[in-house]
């Protein structure tokens, strides 16, 4: 069997074999290959170095490289597992794996908790919740009085903080999500089931066959 394909394929820094990533995530090998096509597109949109930079992530999300957003920043930071300011291919696939429809619900709940634990204290604190509500209002051009924001935050906090210690821990969060399952709806991307149709990757497929 020929191997001209693999010899000629140049991969980006941080590239990992689809078989390795498929073994660690809910994705199949061909889905990982399709994600590589998507990754190449995203990681070359501004700086063609095979890494997703913050501006490229913002461009993909908002069609605007300069649009700052608290939540997009948090997602980027969580995807950037090595915390070196860029998203590598392996990080991209492992993180997106949480959003796969077949990923364990516990992983989705845990990811959302880390997302909302803005200051990495291991808790979601009242101030953090208020900061996120204010960020959402600003993003949506919604204006609510500070009193109303306080009421929304207080009400939610009182429901979630069952131990009443002024902060939401992982156990309380899990319980709160079980009562309000819609809270992790955005942790599932149905697109990921059809990723091979959206981003077919014939060349890389041939390479994997060669390896096998």
């Amino acid at each position: 069997m020929g191997c001209f394909c693999s010899k000629n394929t140049r991969h980006t820094p941080g590239y990992e074999e689809p078989t390795v990533l498929a073994a660690e995530t809910p994705f199949t090998v061909s889905e990982v290959e399709a994600l590589y096509e998507l990754f190449k597109k995203l990681s070359s949109s501004i700086i063609d170095d095979g890494l997703i930079h913050k501006e490229e992530f913002q461009l993909a999300l908002f069609k605007n490289r300069n649009k700052r957003n608290l939540f997009a920043d948090r997602i980027f930071d969580l995807f950037d597992i090595k915390r070196n300011g860029v998203i590598e291919f392996g990080e991209f696939v492992r993180s997106l794996g949480v959003f796969h429809p077949n990923a364990p619900e516990a992983d989705k709940i845990g990811f959302a908790f880390r997302l909302y634990d803005l200051r990495h204290t291991g808790y979601i604190e009242r101030e953090e919740l208020k900061e996120m509500v204010l960020a959402l209002l600003q993003e949506s051009d919604l204006i609510l009085s500070d009193d109303i924001v306080e009421v929304i935050v207080d009400k939610t906090f009182n429901e979630a903080d069952t131990k009443g210690d002024g902060r939401i821990d992982q156990e309380e969060w899990k319980e709160f999500v079980s009562k309000n399952p819609s809270l992790i709806k955005n942790m599932t991307l149905p697109y990921l089931k059809d990723i091979t149709l959206a981003f077919p990757s014939f060349v890389v497929s041939a390479e994997v066959e060669d390896l096998e």
């Binding site: 998507l38 995203l42 993909a60 999300l61 908002f62 069609k63 957003n69 608290l70 939540f71 997009a72 920043d73 948090r74 997602i75 997106l96 959003f99 997302l115 909302y116 919740l129 996120m132 509500v133 960020a135 959402l136 993003e139 949506s140 609510l144 109303i148 009421v151 929304i152 935050v153 009400k155 939610t156 906090f157 429901e159 979630a160 709160f176 309000n180 819609s182 809270l183 709806k185 955005n186 991307l189 697109y191 990723i195 959206a198």
Partner: peptide
Amino acid sequence: AAPVTMNAFELISTSQGLNLSSLFEK
């Protein structure tokens, strides 16, 4: 009165920054 009865996390989860489906748009 609708926003007052709204769950704050529910509100946050509508953020465009959390909607990763945009990554898949061609």
